[in-house]
Amino acid sequence: MTKTKKYKKPPLTEAVFELFYRTDNWTPATPGQFYSQVKEKYPVISQSSGGFGVSFAANGIQIGPGNNNITRYSSENSQSIIQITNNLLTVNKLPMYEGWESYKGMIIDAVSAFVQVMDVKTISRIGLRTINKIDIQAHSYENFKKYFNVYPNIGSGLRKNGINSIQLNYQTLEVEETEEVLAVNLSTLRKEEKYNAPTLFEIYYTRMKEIETKGIDDWLEIAHQQLHVAFESILTNECKQNFDND
């Protein structure tokens, strides 16, 4: 298991594991059967529509005929969540985040419980995402550069009146054979409670090639390491110091 630095006040606001699968035996009873597997830890069940005509697919969302309901199973404190549709399973962790070992255990347990009730034919895509919110104190180009090692190159002549919003996405290919990519999103947000200049910092590692259930454990370690390296590299030391201050 990879050793990673632990911060006193990490900026993590959510971790999401996602698994897109194909099956022939989904029925309207499946959410109830799955509930009986997880209800001790996730007793609160709710259902919402993915939207009329919205269906999930491994390469995105399709708008057209078809429909997907999302069934959500939450812990009593709503900090740990599993969601399922007829081709997607997610495991979400909201603060308090209790560390990678604990979250990985949640994922493995959720997948094990799911394959007990569902004959998963193929896992067509798998992904791990961390969503962080970082206060850069003021929305300016200079502050963005002070907090992130990744920033757009905007010449001084183009920012005479200041830059007050930045949206930046990029993707790198990490493993060609298994189509594994790392994607990063940085987006400044409007001022909100407890944040002067919030900036969303998302890191997403995904494998777009099929994987077997037994390969998930190893893949999770790789994904976690990739996310950790990206987190440490993209944030400046000045930014990271804030996560250790009292």
């Binding site: 999930f56 390469n59 992904g127």
Partner: peptide, 12 residues
């Protein structure tokens, strides 16, 4: 189709 990245709004 919406991108995978945009789809995250539905389950995060």
């Amino acid at each position: 189709e919406m991108s995978v990245f945009d789809a995250r709004f539905l389950f995060s």
